[in-house]
Amino acid sequence: MLKFIVRRFFSSIITIFVIITVAYFLIRAVPGDPFSSEKNMPKEIRENLNRKFHLDQPLYKQYFMYLNNLVFHFDFGPSFRSRGFSVNDLIKQYFPVSLLIGSLAMIIAVILGVSFGMISALNQNKFGDYFFMSYAILGISVPMFVIVPIFLLIFSIGLKILPVGGWKRASDVGIIGMIPYLIIPIFSLSLPYTAYITRMTKAGMMDIIRKDFVTTARAKGLKNSTILFRHIMKGSIIPVVSYVGPAFAGIVTGSVVVEQILGIPGMGRVFVQAAFNRDYSLVMGDVITYSLLIIVMNFVVDILYGFLDPRVKYS
């Protein structure tokens, strides 16, 4: 077990290193520099700016400088576009918003997905089953940029019970005041993952319902609810745990669209803007933060999986 954790840890480190390196050289392959759109900039100012951001140094030196600052000082450097702000400042400002939406969406997806999957498995070939299984295919087929407008059209524009996008900070409206602004982003983001988890839970339960130990439990005369929650549920949830890692990556990506449409000041929206503006350092910071988040998530999930399922052998 310990050996597995150590090995898994090192492969995570390598992954992060590969990400940083590839992202760095890829973004530096972009033709034009961050200041190339400012056509009337005097030569001297441009040279000064280049010197300030060390763009006049050889590429490999810049790369090692970047790596050094990042690893030893957790410093992503200054933003090339938002003058006077460091990338760390910007991430600190935008990241909590995305993290809040993402984690809530994940929680909702797990709760709803597991419940739907159980209903589906217990009512096999009845209405509930067909309903949720159609939903499961539909959920992965409808793109995020269609889900969000549909929610908006129904709840904000039609029924007028939710605000039309936008965002309020907890410091301005309190936590209760934030809820109306959270509902559409959270539910749209969780929809496709609810669909996946529904299917996984159903598949897991169908497998376990047929197992001998369930028959034994029935034969012993245990209550149905006891069998369901004590015997069946535990086994059928295990595959869901392993899915949480990849799902989290997907939710993070999906939040780009959600934030873009609803005008939520999160990392996803900033990332797209930074990519368009060629704000090298901000794009790098975003990619690395996202990657770290996803890698840590996968790492935790893999270890958790081992604790939950004793059959998993770490080799």
């Binding site: 995570s12 390598i14 990400i19 993070v252 990506t253 990332f271 990519a275 990619v287 996803i294």
Partner: peptide, 23 residues
């Protein structure tokens, strides 16, 4: 397969975005 494992860990959608911006 190790290489594939490592590539799996990369949030690739962001790399495709980078690629589209870069080229």
């Amino acid at each position: 397969m190790r290489i594939v494992d490592i590539l799996y860990g990369i949030p690739y959608m962001f790399f495709v975005i980078l690629l589209m911006v870069a080229f």
